[in-house]
Design a protein around this nucleic acid. Structure first.
Lengths: 226, 226
DNA sequence: AAGTGGTCTAGACCACTCG
DNA sequence: GAGTGGTCTAGACCACTTG
């Protein structure tokens, strides 16, 4: 952050470049939960942009839920941010599908385990490999509807690609913009496949996911509400 | 909107006064779903504010989920409210999982097809067997986030069982009440399994699912909003 | 008093959509 | 080409918080 890191020739907006810089500092732990991020004035001076642009960067952090602002005090790294990271770690296919909504659920357990042989088989894991274990109650209008136990391998990947013409139009992004492709098949207990889903996600809305899919470690051991 | 309605002496921000005016017009039906709200330029002229202030009013509408903006086209009233009405028609295994939330999505296609060989393989279907094909756009805050294509075999079954003591307590139902068990594994495109989920659903809240899984016909050919 | 975020202005250039 | 939203500037005044 000491040096100007902005590329003014780039098509990437300045506020977005600043946002990414700050996100990286937060992820890396350089700015911790509860601590202030640089103020609007400080950012505008350091980065050589107008205060409105610095402000837009900070507001975008707030909209992501990563930070919150307090009049007269500053802008601080949100505690909820970690929870959202989790949601995105856990999100993948499932949690991503409901983004923008507020699925109500309570986490009963969230830990890193060495899965049972049955689960390991299902996930094609060797006996030693670890997985996240997540046990949740899901609510519908405050009525508990479902108990869900999820296992996710610690190493997990999403497939990156570029948007086709049709995808670009539907998602209102430019053609050849980055997207993620997910494909999956859902099975019943008896092994019978019941659902085949292919999904295309906007790359610009899922960057955290792609990062987390590569490391995915920061989440272990916490028990947030999803 | 013809007259200046803003109170510049008020402590209420101008952008907020404009937002409230627009919200009232949307609620009253003066501006209907899918129709454009006044553009930034038009608002700034009519209301006698700078374009940035008009813009802030429109963005606040978007953040509320009431409207969405399209570059080069305009800002339009979101159909979020309408989408809720049709949600439950399509509650297969997936949709049920997000009950209690308000997943916004639009159905582009929903029909009964004879799937391609690739999909048939994934679902273990014989070449002649049919599947439902469901194509949707999913929204997050009125931003299209994902295109999703789902194939579901016409004959689909959920595994019925009775609730264990723990399940009964968590779901607040009586012991031995009917429940459904789902188990599934999610895969990436390369066939790598990334998620293993076992779920227990309340039987009394999932009748739609059980109905659809048995006949699966009532929904065929319809093109509702989910 | 100094620093912060909240609001606001009056311009500007751009990429995009559409007729 | 006209209209739209997206970004950006270089200022400004305000209310608020803290030392």
């Amino acid at each position: 952050m000491h040096r100007v890191v902005l590329d003014r020739q780039s098509a990437i907006p300045l506020y977005y470049q600043i946002q990414q810089t700050l996100l990286e500092q937060i992820r890396s732990g350089a700015i911790k939960v509860g601590q202030p991020v640089p103020s609007e004035q400080e950012l505008s001076q350091r980065m050589g942009v107008s205060r409105m642009t610095a402000r837009q960067a900070l507001k975008s952090l707030c909209h992501l839920g990563v930070a919150y602002s307090q009049r007269g005090k500053g802008t601080f790294v949100s505690r909820a941010k970690l929870e959202k990271d989790f949601r995105q770690v856990l999100s993948f296919s499932e949690e991503m599908r409901v983004r923008g909504s507020q699925p109500r659920s309570r986490v009963l357990a969230f830990k890193r385990i060495t899965p049972s042989s049955g689960v390991a088989d299902a996930l094609h894991l060797s006996p030693k490999e670890q997985a996240f274990f997540l046990k949740r109650i899901r609510f519908a209008d405050s009525v508990p509807l479902c108990i869900e136990c999820t296992h996710i391998p610690v190493h997990e990947v999403a497939e990156a690609a570029v948007a086709s013409a049709e995808e670009a139009k539907l998602l209102r992004i430019r053609k050849k913009a980055p997207v993620f492709h997910f494909t999956r098949t859902a099975f019943l207990a008896d092994g019978k496949p019941i659902e085949f889903v292919s999904s295309t996600y906007r790359g610009d809305r899922c960057k955290v996911v792609s990062r987390l899919t590569r490391s995915g470690k920061s989440a272990a051991g916490k028990v947030p509400h999803a």
